[in-house]
Design a protein around this nucleic acid. Structure first.
Lengths: 192, 192, 192, 192
DNA sequence: CATGAATGAGTTTTCATTCAT
DNA sequence: TATGAATGAAAACTCATTCAT
């Protein structure tokens, strides 16, 4: 059990440092120190810094998608499904502020652009499928505005990420009511 | 006239390099080269790299605010004023992709957080006043949803920045119609 | 029989990697991998990398000397004995290019100097004795030029190693005729 | 005059350290220290370590060729020209032991092989032309043995480099007489 | 005996900043 | 004022060797 232990410690330390100080604020030596391992040890688990960063991203993404699946049912009406995804996403970010800030660092970086492209164009089999499927359905069924998927995504993710950031930075204190109102407002933005 | 000339060249070179390659991809020596000045010269105009970055940010912000003022009139009805600001902001980003990408780099960095705080809390006499005033008025007059300013901001800036990014990265081709529809959708999101 | 088995595998792997990539291109972990043993195992057979390198050298030298002995007879005339040693040495290098390249790596390194000293000064009981004895005899019997042993060695080994290298690197294709002519030319150089 | 000063110091330090300790025994930090400059300074003059190593090699080669040209005349008989080149080359190595040892390090390395190929195949316009021209002439005029150029080179350079090495390592003390005898012996080896 | 994860000193290279000219 | 050579701290990564299992 000591092997996954170290890998986990490294990942945790990397998440913490990168989330708080950005990629350049997280030198490998510091990550190692925070993980209580030697600098060289990191390279037993990750080929290089890029790989560490990318694998950490995938871990995070997987966790988010799992969180969103919970309680999500294709049986429920469209609007309810949308509200579920929105509130759960926001909840997840609020409960995991380090994860949120890590994602921001990641998306605003060379790594991020490629991933973003995949997600939007749907070329990857990646996670974002839940959203793409739902939004696509909404367009087809004329529940949502007849706009390019990218723009509907912007109208949803834009505000959600923005309020999450504001909450985490302490500019607003999101409670259940506010979360609900925010997601409802997003709904107003995208619904036909 | 040779002094401001150099300053301008430095700022221009910094904008270009930082927008395209991020802060890392813009070492002072390279900025100097692109500005056709010596490395040491930059330090006659800017105390250090941080100051250069911050001043460049202020320049950009000032330009944006000036662009928004044009054609903006307190006489026009509320909704029209909102649509004007939204479309003009989007236009500005589309016409100045380097500026937009610079802002993204800037906001996603230690510098960015402080500035954001000022803007949202309104502690600075900074630019965002046009928006704050308008949104505040909208709340008071019960035109906009009764939500914290921060959240209304998120519902507006979130989508606008998001579609601007997507356009600049080539994920969508924004024409006048799409721009209009996007801002209208934002309106749907914030209006009561 | 499993102990010597492993030792052999390690030595073989080291020969291969060092011959092809030099000492730098042969980290202990890689040698271990190629030998199908664990990294730590190497240290059961060799105190450290230097010892491994030196012992491998001795193995090689012993093999060469054995190859030279074959068909070598003190009965034969001097010139014939010389030609035999020369052609056999060249044959051996051509048939064992890895061995040759290893020797080159070895001689051009701190290890090499000490060994060379031993060989030339004859302080070690080492291999080169066949050559030293033969050449010494040639001087005494006034068959060879009256030059220091070192210089006669240079006139023989210099060309032989040089053509071997050129053949192995593909700069010339040595056939039996060329090999013979080369050794004859060496003979012309040293004979009185 | 301070610019070439530093470059020269760096080159001198590199020559010294590499000649004495090999490429890995000469870390950039140590070269910098021996040159009395900061580590970063080296990179103002040489893009990276490889470039430093290669440029140093070219400097050395140029010097050698200049030394060989001195007193060399196409008017003199073939044999005399050969003896001139041989003795001068040996003299040069004896007078510049660091240069000799540097060349040995260089030739026995990835860099070296490429250079060697050029020299032998004569694809480069490089220096070795004096030798190639002379030897080629000797073959044509039936003064030298009818052997591939590569092999004649081996019969000449092999012994010369070998005795130079032995002298520098202290295994033999070359005086004028010995130098002469050695080169004469080489002549015996290559002449028809 | 064998393993292979862990170590950490050591390597090359970058870059913001200074200062003599 | 302007220059740009020089600085040196800091970063990512490698690898011989050890030692608990």
């Amino acid at each position: 059990m000591s092997k996954p232990d170290k890998r986990d410690e490294i990942v945790r330390a990397a998440l913490e440092l990168i989330a708080e100080n950005g990629f350049h604020g997280a030198p490998m030596a510091l990550i190692a120190e925070h993980a209580n391992v030697a600098a060289g040890t990191i390279y037993r688990y990750f080929e290089n810094k890029d790989v560490l960063i990318t694998e950490l991203y995938r871990d995070i993404e997987k966790n988010i998608m799992e969180a969103l699946q919970e309680g999500y049912s294709l049986e429920k009406p469209f609007r309810e499904r949308f509200l579920h995804l929105g509130t759960e996403l926001l909840h997840h970010f609020i409960r995991n502020p380090l994860v949120f800030r890590y994602l921001e660092q990641f998306h605003n970086s060379p790594y991020g652009v490629a991933v973003r492209r995949d997600k939007i164009l749907g070329t990857s089999t990646s996670d974002c499928n839940v959203f793409r499927e739902l939004f696509q359905l909404g367009i087809t069924q004329q529940i949502l505005k007849d706009l390019p998927l990218v723009i509907l995504f912007a109208l949803f993710f834009g505000p959600v990420l923005s309020v999450a950031r504001d909450h985490i930075l302490g500019f607003v204190e999101l409670d259940e009511a506010l979360i609900h109102q925010t997601i409802e407002a997003c709904w107003d933005g995208i619904k036909r």
